[in-house]
Nucleic acid binder design. Structure first.
Length: 146
DNA sequence: CGTTAAGCTTGAA
DNA sequence: TTCAAGCTTAACG
């Protein structure tokens, strides 16, 4: 979990601590990463354990105007529910930008906080996920149970 | 069931 | 500014 002065600006998932840190450093070149303890990390972990309670943290999502719109729409998907790329496209007023929506999700830095894992193909299939389809399925399963 | 074209944003060249 | 590519999708052969 990476925080800026304004809030959480990145949440990432990975198997290997090394690569994870390297990637983050890559993503925030001008930033000195401080390894922390964190109350914030704990909060996020708790949220993953029990998605139903919601994540009460200030988010500092950085992206283009289009991405912001997509992310906002995605955050409105209720826990345990899913939406198709088409649904999201409709919701942001760009019914034909389906593929662009996918790309926006793909470039989301805030894993779980912005539930791009709740966006699936129109037929319900889990087509892809930045951190691996397996994780996407795991998250959805957990939310469905809640 | 495999292809194909439509459609929009992004990051790199 | 041009271009290829993406977590798509509906239509076709």
């Amino acid at each position: 979990v990476v925080t800026s002065g304004r809030g959480v600006c990145a949440i990432s998932i990975g198997d290997d601590r090394e690569t994870l840190i390297r990637d983050l450093h890559d993503q925030f070149p001008r930033t000195e990463l401080v390894e922390g303890d964190g109350a914030v990390g704990a909060t996020v972990a708790a949220f993953v354990d029990d998605p139903a309670r919601g994540l009460a943290l200030p988010l500092d999502a950085q992206g283009t105007a289009f991405q912001q719109r997509v992310w906002r729409a995605v955050r409105e998907i209720p826990v345990g529910a899913t939406a198709s790329y088409t649904d999201v496209a409709d919701r942001i007023g760009a019914p034909h930008a389906v593929r662009a929506v996918a790309r926006a999700c793909a470039s989301n830095a805030l894993a779980v906080a912005i539930p791009c894992h709740r966006v699936v193909a129109r037929d319900g299939a889990l087509t892809g996920y930045r951190w691996g389809v397996a994780r996407k399925r795991a998250l959805l399963d957990r939310e469905a149970g809640a």
